[in-house]
């Protein structure tokens, strides 16, 4: 039973990390229908930016965190402006390959600067955060992850619900021509959604870095793990991304715990195929997929 509970806790923690990583991805897809294959690299860039600012430049943690968010926000703008804007209206394959090209560029640069080793953040979390119930342990990093994640989810919930920019973004996601005709600046919305997605990605990257250590390969491979998560939850649903992440995380840990450790890596993709065959729009996605 203890083993089961520990797996459950591990699964939820891992799943929450996936949910956080998937958020930025869904945000971009929701507003501009772009599948962002460079998402893993955005996570990595955020984590490394924080590493440089906090550890190498020796800034206070809060300041480094804020600067990282600002930096990645700007990076998102730049990516949209220079790479994706020329491609509005192009075929799917061009857009996918463009994001893949960007991901190779970022990965090359990161490897060039930081190498393929694992870097660690300094220990800045208070020990008191760790939780313990009987035999089940939850290390302080995971508790911190939950807290950071939930704070950001609330902020984004309010942002999308009440701020004008958030409402524009939802309108573009819902119906682009209608939003255009009502005077929404769709280009600015695209730019904003990339910027915000990069910001969310940086935040998730930092959290992932705290939990797993910062490694270019590790973080960029999470960019591909995002696909099962978002398909399961529904490509355009933020709530779905969160639940999808939890389900995939639980599935991975339980497969790893009870079936076989090697199957663990592949089980999300098997689920992905099944979901695509049965319910392609996911658990919470909008049912408007075109049947062939």
């Amino acid at each position: 039973m203890d083993f089961f509970l520990q797996l459950l806790v591990n699964g939820i923690s891992l799943g929450f990390l996936y949910s956080l990583s998937a958020l930025g991805f869904v945000m971009i897809f929701k507003s501009s229908s772009v599948l962002n294959f460079a998402h893993g690299e955005l996570l990595a860039i955020g984590a490394f930016m924080f590493l440089v600012l906090s550890l190498w430049a020796n800034l206070p943690i809060v300041l480094a965190f804020a600067l990282t968010l600002i930096g990645s926000f700007t990076l998102g703008f730049i990516i949209e402006r220079f790479f994706l804007r020329p491609l509005i209206g192009e075929a799917l394959i061009q857009v996918i390959m463009l994001t893949l090209g960007i991901s190779y560029m970022f990965k090359g640069l990161l490897l060039f600067v930081f190498g393929g080793d694992i870097h660690d953040f300094p220990d800045f979390l208070p020990e008191g955060l760790a939780l313990k119930w009987g035999a089940v342990e939850l290390p302080s990093v995971y508790v911190a992850t939950f807290i950071i994640g939930i704070i950001f989810l609330i902020i984004f919930g309010f942002f999308f619900k009440y701020s004008s920019q958030g409402i524009y973004m939802r309108s573009v996601a819902d119906n682009q021509p209608a939003a255009l005709s009502l005077g929404v600046n769709v280009r600015r919305v695209f730019a904003f959604s990339w910027a915000i997605a990069a910001l969310v990605a940086a935040m998730s990257g930092i959290v992932l870095g705290i939990v797993k250590g910062i490694n270019v390969h590790e973080l960029s491979s999470i960019g591909l793990k995002v696909f099962p998560v978002v398909i399961l939850g529904g490509l355009d649903s933020i709530g779905g991304a969160i639940l999808g992440g939890l389900i995939i995380g639980l599935l991975e840990t339980f497969t790893g715990g009870y079936v076989s450790t090697s199957l663990r890596e592949i089980i999300p993709f098997i689920v992905l195929v099944l979901i695509l065959m049965v319910r392609p729009y996911g658990l919470f996605g909008l049912v408007e997929i075109e049947r062939v």
Binding site: I96, S262, I266, F269, V273, L276, M277, P280, I289, V292
Partner: peptide
């Protein structure tokens, strides 16, 4: 999957295929 899926959904299905086949090669 192309029976039911189009565009990016099909793309993601083939992505999953890539990883599943890779897994078979190794295991």
């Amino acid at each position: 999957p192309s029976l039911r899926l189009k565009h990016l959904y099909l793309t993601i299905a083939t992505l999953a295929g890539q990883f599943i086949i890779e897994y078979v090669f190794v295991h």
